[in-house]
Nucleic acid binder design. Structure first.
Lengths: 159, 159
DNA sequence: CAGATCTCAGCTATACTGAAATGC
DNA sequence: CGCATTTCAGTATAGCTGAGATCT
């Protein structure tokens, strides 16, 4: 589960890569993903599950399409994830009587409980990931990243 | 080519996600990857090609295994990428006489030229990605990310 | 009829695993 | 022999496309 590699081992990394923000971000993200994936795997979940359960808990019941839009997930992937979550009893699909094309998705009590477990896993990962940074630096990092994200979100909206 | 999506559109994003550094990083990285992938695709390349060519140009001829180690790429993936690069005449494989298990990989003049084109693409992407940040902020971001990367690299070395 | 919704089948890129053939 | 190198075949995940059936 510690798959290893992911970062150079033998010699140096090419300067082109470790000096470019786009690559630094990708490398840090790869590390973060690995932490999340293995933490969630230990809890029998995956990253997609967390996104879905979080949206349901924060926003209440939604249609599959609306769910997908709120977390940037493709509708076809939503189908597959809900199948998995329903099998585990973490969500419930009921067809919406006001629009018979739609399913109304609800998080179950077991789902809420599972979400809390995953929240704890995620919290632990933030600590591990940000260990080398001071509280101030953590704030700076979040602020800078949010700025980049806002910008790219607006860029897409403009297209 | 503008694939779209990638970030919520309909309503708000769950607070759990956009408040956690690990998710912010992943989202920014996804955006960066998309920029790189489409920029490289326009030049007939992919991200893996850049890594390989950069390592060869900066460090000189290497064996496939050493190449893979220097850029954190799996040996089996190195094989496939070198096949593609060799077909385009960007690298050359010659078997190493001092150790007949090894191939010595060299970047060709065409490869160096192609790398320069990709360098320009990458430079443009940094500007696009970091547009909302001041020069000071860009420096801060790189510094913070490098710190995180150093930490995770040391963590792996310790295992 | 246009358009939304759900579903399924399949594709790509990245990254990894396992195993074989060869050579040190 | 153990170990490194190259290669191939296969797996898994995230994200996407295309198309069909159903409904508004």
């Amino acid at each position: 589960m510690k798959t290893h590699a992911e970062r150079p081992v033998g010699g140096a990394t090419p300067a082109r890569l470790n000096s470019k923000p786009s690559w630094l971000i990708r490398d840090v993200a790869a590390h973060a993903s690995q932490l999340v994936a293995s933490g969630f795997a230990a809890a029998g979940a995956r990253s997609y599950h967390y996104r879905v359960l979080a949206a349901l808990e924060e926003f209440g019941p939604k249609s599959q399409a609306a769910l997908g839009r709120s977390i940037g997930m493709d509708p076809s992937d939503v189908v597959a994830m809900l199948n998995e979550l329903a099998e585990k009893g973490l969500i419930e699909r009921t067809s919406d009587p006001s629009d018979r094309r739609r399913n109304s998705i609800t998080i179950t009590p077991a789902g809420t409980q599972h979400l809390q477990v995953l929240d704890a896993v995620v919290a632990g990962i933030q600590d591990e990931l940000l260990a080398p940074l001071s509280a101030d630096e953590r704030g700076d990092l979040s602020r800078l990243l949010s700025k980049l994200l806002d910008h790219s979100a607006r860029g897409e909206a403009a297209s």
